[in-house]
Simulated assay, not measured.
Amino acid sequence: MKLYGLILLCVLSLSAKQTFALDPNTEIAPGVSYGVSNMFHTWMSEFGKIYPSVEEEFKRTRIWKQNHDLIETHNTKDPSPSYTLGHNQFSDMTLDEFHQMFGLGIYKKEVASSESKLRGKNSPDADGTLAAKEARRRALQEDDDCDGDTDDNTDDNTADDDATDIPKMVNWVDKGAVTNVKNQGMCGSCWAFSAIGAIESARFLATGDLTNLSEQELLDCDSTDAGCQGGLMDNAFLFDERDGGLCSDEEYPYVMHKHWIFGCSRYKAKCTDVPNSEVGSFEDIRNTTKALMKAIVKQPIAIAIEADTTSFQFYKSGVYVDECGEDIDHGVLAAGYGTEDGVDYWLVKNSWGESWGNEGYIKIGRDSENDLGSCGILSAASRPIMKVS
C-alpha cells in the first residue's frame, strides 16, 4: 500500500504540472482509477476532508466510488425519478457509518416510535414528566378551545375531516418565519433542533422577532431527555414550559456534546432568557395528512421521520418518493407543503447543514400507502404554543 501511495502522489504531482495525460481508467490502487481519484480529490477539497494515512484515503476513495455509482445510477434512470441524488459531506461514509453517526436504523436513539411516544416508553420518567405530557395531550385533543388561538376556527384535531379551508401551498421559509439551517454534527440531538426550530417559528409568529435559540441549553438542562443520546420534542416543549424560557444560541452556543459537570448551572448563569421564548402549552397532532396540513397552516411543526435509507443520505433535489418505512428515528421541522411537477410534498428542514439536500431542506412526498405517511411523517407531529406577555 505504501507503494500505491507513492505512485498516487507522483501521479497527482505530474498531473498538476500537466506534463502528461494519463488514461482516467488506469488503476493506481486496487479499485481506484486515476479518473476516480481526481474526482475524489476535488470532492475532498470542496468539503475540507483530510485523512490520517494513505491507506485510509484509499479506503474512503473506494467507498466514495461506490456511492458515486449509486448516485449516477439513480439520476440516469428512465423514466426520470421524482428526485435526484448528489454528493455531500457524507459521500465517503458507508450506510452503516452514516447510521452510527446519527443514531439511525439499528442504532436508533433519537426519536421513539409513535406508540412509544404515546405510552411513554424508551424515555426517563422519574418525575412523571411523560405521564403529565400524556394527560396534556389528551386534554388538548378533547378541548377545541384549549390551543390558545384567538381565531374562531375549531381545533385541528377535531375538525380534521373538513379540508375545505386548507390552502394548496404553505411555505414558512419564504415568509421569513424559519431560522437558518443548522448542523447537529456528530451528536444525536435532532430532537433538540426539531423542538427549537418549532419554538423559534412559533415565537416569530407571536412577536414578529426571529431569533436563533439555544439547542445546547436543551442538551445540558433538559434532564428528561438524554442529550446526544436522544430525546423527544414534546419533552423539550415541557422543559421550556417549566423552565420559563430559553437563551439565545449566541449566548449559549452549540458545542455538539453535553456539558456534564455542572454544565447547565454554569452556562445558564452566563445568559439571559430571550423575551417571549417560553412555551405555554403544546399540542400533539393527529396522525392524518389533513391534520398535519391544518397544523402547518398555523405554524411550522416539529415532526419525526425514518431517515435511514441510502437515498435519504444523498438526497439532493425534487420530491422524495421512496420506500422509507415508518420506523421513525430522526426529528426535523415541517416548514410547509405544496406541489411540484404534479407531486404533492411536505417541505422539511433538516439539521445536517446546508450542504445536505436542497440547501438543508428536503421535499418528502405527501401521498403514501403507509398509514403514518411517507417515512412515518405523521407519527409524532406536535406544535408549541407560546406564552407571550
Rank of each mutant, 00 (worst) to 15 (best):
E142W: 05
D92E: 13
I362Q: 01
G148P: 03
A16T: 05
P167M: 09
L246H: 04
Q229N: 14
G336E: 02
V255S: 13
A29M: 07
S223C: 10
G5R: 00
M186A: 13
D249G: 13
D152A: 15
E369A: 09
S355A: 13
K182P: 00
D69W: 05
D222Y: 02
D156V: 14
R60I: 01
T73A: 15
P30E: 12
W356H: 00
L218P: 00
H74M: 07
R138N: 13
D125H: 04
W346Q: 01
E217H: 11
L205R: 09
T154G: 12
T211P: 03
G244T: 03
D92I: 03
F312V: 02
C264G: 06
E251T: 11
F90Y: 15
Y34E: 13
A139Y: 10
E340G: 01
D327T: 05
T42F: 04
D151C: 09
Y345C: 00
P81S: 07
L14H: 06
L70V: 01
G103N: 06
L238W: 08
Q229T: 05
Y337P: 02
D147R: 08
E72H: 10
M44A: 12
D23M: 09
R60Y: 05
L372F: 07
G325S: 06
G185C: 09
D308I: 00
I305Y: 02
